[in-house]
Design a protein around this nucleic acid. Structure first.
Length: 443
RNA sequence: CGGAGUGUGGCUCAGCCUGGUAGAGCACCUCGUUCGGGACGAGGGGGUCGCAGGUUCAAAUCCUGCCACUCCGACCA
């Protein structure tokens, strides 16, 4: 992508409403634009990151055996009356009426709808286990939206719903998502810690929040510091193996870890003092087992091997991709801007032409840009007529992992400079060697 | 929902107390000089001062009401 033809409205000054780093940097880097309190447009650069995050989520959901579908944002109130939540959910639910004066709502979550889908097609235990998910916009009319995407009213959510014949099956379904979540966040460069959590309005009695440690996190958390050293399951995990998954979950729940809601000071005090970790965290995922809370009242029944019908056991599993954009920035930034981990970066490389309009640098940049693009390396070419300093600042701000600096100084030696955004390391390389770095073996 | 605060060109803000021709920096357009860490000069365009009432000869400025947004706390992917 040529910057001259892209839409990337960077801000030099920080809009006054932005308090935390991620919000500030997203606005400055031209990723988002606020439309109303807690409601944002994703501008092209922000959308690229969001899309990459969703791609990783999908890959791991699919790997764990979940199946994607797509449910609407608008739901009928009648569905929610069946579960009793239409009244129970409170003012957080945005209630609307259509032209026929029918009660509708903008979905804050989809347990009711997925249960309705399930019950209209599935009758037998032979169709289980089943896990259906979608990635869709949700609306929760928060009293106080804040911190940009961190606590918006409209937000993107991946929500999965599992269906099993009994608790044992449901527990395995829960474990699948548990392990998938560990992998999902790790692939984004994040260290997540599963913590015992309140189940809130979703209900149920088995629930974990996946927390990223960050100073700007909204939750106060307490855990054993050994969690920071645990190994994340590899891509070869056998999601069919009940025993293998249970072993992983057992390990990851073996030590104390709780949010302030569920914090037990006495248990925490038993951890050796040097292993106690008291910090703030960002909730990026939340998983629940809630049994027959919805299937019983909504009559989502399946026949078991003995022929009798029984309500299906369910769980639900949420990840906030839009919140993850912010969480990743909180974890990876410095004073100059964002430092994207490669798997979620909006572009992999940015070519900076330090003397736009000079034949030599223009030619070298064009060649590099064309060659990188041909190799499938997503590259942004900063081809605006700006001074080098402005280009450096812009590149650091938007945080693309690899900067390729092309100026007369290095070009005189037949070289360009490859700078890594994450640690600032620089190397002088011939253009051909830069290309080799981005070859099949990656950088 | 309790408490605090802010609305003035695209952005950051001054002006308001003490009413009298709407300002600055950045950004934008033109020309020139520049060019390895957010350049400089000259010229130019752009704002019914959140909205509605009121007071006054005169309101960005004073008064009343409303709206929007932000921050602190209680609740939440």
């Amino acid at each position: 992508m040529r910057l001259s033809r892209y839409f990337l409205p960077m801000l030099r000054e920080t809009p006054k409403e932005a308090e935390i780093a991620s919000h500030r940097l997203m606005l400055r880097a031209g990723m988002i634009r606020q439309e109303a309190a807690g409601i944002y447009s994703f501008l092209p650069l922000g959308l690229r990151v969001l899309t990459r995050i969703c791609r990783i989520i999908r890959e791991e959901q699919d790997r764990a055996g979940a199946i994607e579908l797509l449910m609407p944002t608008i739901q009928s109130a009648d569905l929610w009356r069946e579960s009793g939540r239409y009244e129970a959910y409170g003012k957080e639910m945005l209630r609307i009426k259509d032209r026929h004066d029918r009660d509708m709502l903008y979905g804050p979550t989809n347990e009711e709808m997925i249960t309705a889908i399930f019950r209209s097609y599935v009758r037998s235990y032979k169709d289980l286990p089943l896990n259906l998910y979608h990635i869709q916009w949700k609306f929760r009319d928060e009293v106080r939206p804040r911190f940009g995407l961190m606590r918006g009213r409209e937000f993107l959510m991946k929500d999965a719903y599992s269906f099993d014949l009994d608790f044992a099956g449901a527990k395995h379904a829960y474990n699948r998502m548990f392990v998938a979540y560990l992998r999902t966040f790790a692939r984004m460069g994040l260290r997540s810690i599963p913590m015992v959590a309140e189940s809130g309005p979703i209900g149920g009695n088995l629930s974990h929040e996946f927390i990223i440690l960050a100073d700007t996190g909204e939750s106060e958390v307490f855990c054993h510091s050994d969690y920071l050293g645990f190994e994340v399951p590899g891509s070869d995990v056998d999601f069919e193996s009940v025993k293998a998954l249970q072993a992983i979950v057992d390990q990851w729940t073996s030590l104390y870890a709780a949010t302030s809601d569920k914090h037990d000071a006495a248990t925490y005090a038993k951890i050796p003092a040097e292993r106690r970790l008291s910090a703030r965290g960002i909730e990026v995922g939340h998983i629940f087992y809630f049994g027959t809370k919805y299937s019983a009242p909504m009559k989502a029944l399946v026949a078991g091997p003995d022929g009798t019908e029984r309500p299906v056991h369910m769980g639900s599993y949420g990840i906030g991709p839009s919140r993850l954009v912010a969480a990743i920035i909180e974890a990876f930034h410095d004073d100059a801007g964002i430092k994207w981990p490669e798997p979620v970066a909006p572009f992999r490389a940015v070519v900076l032409n330090l003397k736009q309009g000079a034949g030599e640098t223009d030619r070298a940049c064009e060649e590099l840009y064309a060659a990188l693009s041909a190799r499938g390396v997503e590259t942004l070419y900063h081809d605006l007529d700006e001074r080098p300093g402005a280009k450096f600042a812009a590149a650091d701000l938007i945080g693309i992992p690899w900067q390729i600096l092309v100026g007369p100084r290095s070009l005189a030696e037949g070289k360009v400079e490859l700078k890594q955004r994450s640690d600032g390391t620089r190397e002088m390389l011939a253009p051909a060697d830069v290309l080799a770095r981005f070859g099949a073996e990656g950088v």
